[in-house]
Simulated assay, not measured.
Amino acid sequence: MLFTLLVLIGVYPLITLLSFLIEPLAADWLLWQRTAILTPLMVFAMLYGLIPMIQQTVRLFTKPTKNKPEGRLGT
């Protein structure tokens, strides 16, 4: 659930930024044309930027502590 929430929080500003950046180039294009350009940029940014960053963040919250006892009964 945490991962999904963080992806949602990260995707919104990313898609807004990418839309803003391609707007001067694609102002008079049809919606499907803008989407055809925006989608590969979005996927690339998510795969190599957003998702690894979110995975590191989630790992910080879920990483077990070294002081935690191991074993069934903590022995």
Rank of each mutant, 00 (worst) to 15 (best):
L41T: 00
T57Q: 01
D28Y: 13
L50W: 06
G49R: 02
L25W: 15
L25I: 14
Q55E: 14
D28V: 11
M42T: 15
L41A: 09
L47N: 13
L25C: 11
E23T: 08
R34P: 01
M53S: 15
P52L: 07
Q33G: 07
L47P: 03
W29A: 08
M46P: 00
A26F: 14
E23H: 12
T39Y: 02
M42D: 06
Q55F: 03
P40D: 07
L30T: 12
V58H: 02
P24T: 00
T57P: 03
L25N: 07
S19A: 03
L25S: 15
P24M: 03
E23Q: 11
T39S: 11
L41M: 14
T35G: 12
M46Q: 11
P52G: 00
V58N: 08
Q56H: 08
D28K: 15
L31D: 11
W32K: 11
T35F: 10
W29N: 09
L47K: 09
L50H: 00
L38R: 06
L41F: 10
E23R: 14
F20S: 12
W29M: 10
I54D: 00
P40Y: 02
I37Q: 05
L31I: 06
Q56W: 03
L50V: 09
W29H: 11
S19V: 01
D28W: 10
A36H: 07
P40A: 00
I51Y: 05
M53I: 11
Q55T: 10
T57Y: 02
A26R: 11
L25A: 15
I22N: 05
I22G: 00
P24L: 01
M42P: 00
G49E: 02
F44T: 10
L25K: 13
I51P: 01
G49Q: 01
A26P: 09
V58L: 02
L31A: 13
L41G: 09
M42C: 06
V43N: 08
A27I: 11
Q56F: 06
L38F: 00
I54C: 09
L50A: 05
G49L: 07
L38E: 13
E23W: 12
L50F: 02
P52E: 08
E23A: 14
G49W: 01
I22H: 00
S19N: 13
Y48I: 02
M53L: 13
F44S: 10
I54A: 05
A26L: 13
D28H: 14
Q33N: 10
I22E: 07
T39L: 11
P52M: 05
W32Q: 06
I51Q: 04
D28S: 15
M42K: 13
M42N: 04
F20K: 15
V43G: 09
D28P: 09
M53Y: 13
S19H: 05
A36V: 03
L21N: 02
A45E: 04
L41Y: 10
Q55I: 08
I22Y: 04
Q56G: 05
L25F: 12
W32E: 11
T57H: 03
L38G: 06
M46I: 05
M46R: 06
Q33Y: 09
A27W: 12
M42I: 00
M53Q: 12
R34N: 09
T35L: 13
G49F: 08
Q55S: 14
Q33K: 12
I22K: 05
T39D: 06
